[in-house]
Each structure stands twice: as C-alpha cells, then as structure tokens.
C-alpha cells in the first residue's frame, strides 16, 4: 500500500492538486494545438482564418493561464524530481515549496505584464 502525498495535507496537497490541474489543462491545450497546427498544410488562408479564434480577448486571457500553468508545472516538477532523487531534500519540503512559489512569481509577474500590455494594445 502506497500513500500518495494527497494525504499529507498543507503544502504537499496544494502542490499536488495544482500539479495535476495544470498538467491536465496543458494536455487539453496541447491536443487543441496539434489540431490547429495540422491545418498549416492547407495553406495561409485556412490557417490564418483559424488563428482568429486565438486573437480575441477571451483567448488571450486564457493564454495567460496557459503560460502560468506551464511555468508552475515546470518549476514544481523540478521540486518533485529533487525530492525523488535527493534524500537531503526530504527534510526541506517547506523550503522547496516556498522556492517554487518565489521562482514562479519571479517568472510569471513580468510575463503576465508583457502579455497584458500586448493583449490590450
């Protein structure tokens, strides 16, 4: 019987839930993205007509969520790998969790500002 860290509560549970939600969300977008990029072969008119969907404001807000999901999943994934392969990290769970929060914030805040400026420009 193995116990997943969903049962551990606190930081572990928050990270675990966010990792799964962002992972499944990015997978859903990846499937949509494979379908749109397949249309490239049908020429400029077909592809550019399709891209109009992505250029509207609702998608551009969702797009910021997509980028946030990729950033979080990547940074938190590094935390998971560090804990899985380095015994010393097991006693430093809380510090690693906060390192993820800090690194995510440092990357995401400037990204979100640039994307919002571009979206409302």
């Amino acid at each position: 019987m193995t116990i997943g860290n969903i049962y551990r509560g606190r930081e572990g549970m928050v990270s675990w839930a966010l990792h799964r939600i962002t992972g499944l969300g990015v997978l859903l977008f990846l499937l949509i993205h494979i379908a749109d990029i397949y249309i490239v072969r049908y020429g400029a008119e077909a592809f550019d007509d399709l891209l109009i969907i992505y250029k509207g404001l609702p998608f551009r807000i969702l797009e910021i969520g997509l980028v946030a999901s990729v950033y979080f999943h990547a940074i938190n994934g590094l935390r998971v790998i560090i804990i899985d392969f380095w015994d010393g990290a097991v006693d430093r769970q809380r510090e690693l969790f906060w390192a993820v929060v800090v690194l995510f914030t440092v990357m995401f805040v400037p990204t979100a500002i640039l994307m919002l400026i571009a979206a409302f420009d």
Partner: peptide, 18 residues
C-alpha cells in the same frame, strides 16, 4: 512558451511565421 507567447504574440504569428 516564452518565444511563442511572450517575445512573439498571437498578433505576429501567422502562416508565414510558421
């Protein structure tokens, strides 16, 4: 993600770009 959504945006990306 940084190249396609931050440095370039959906405003620049089109068939010619790909």
């Amino acid at each position: 993600v940084i190249i396609m959504h931050v440095i370039n945006t959906v405003d620049e990306i089109d068939h010619a770009f790909v």
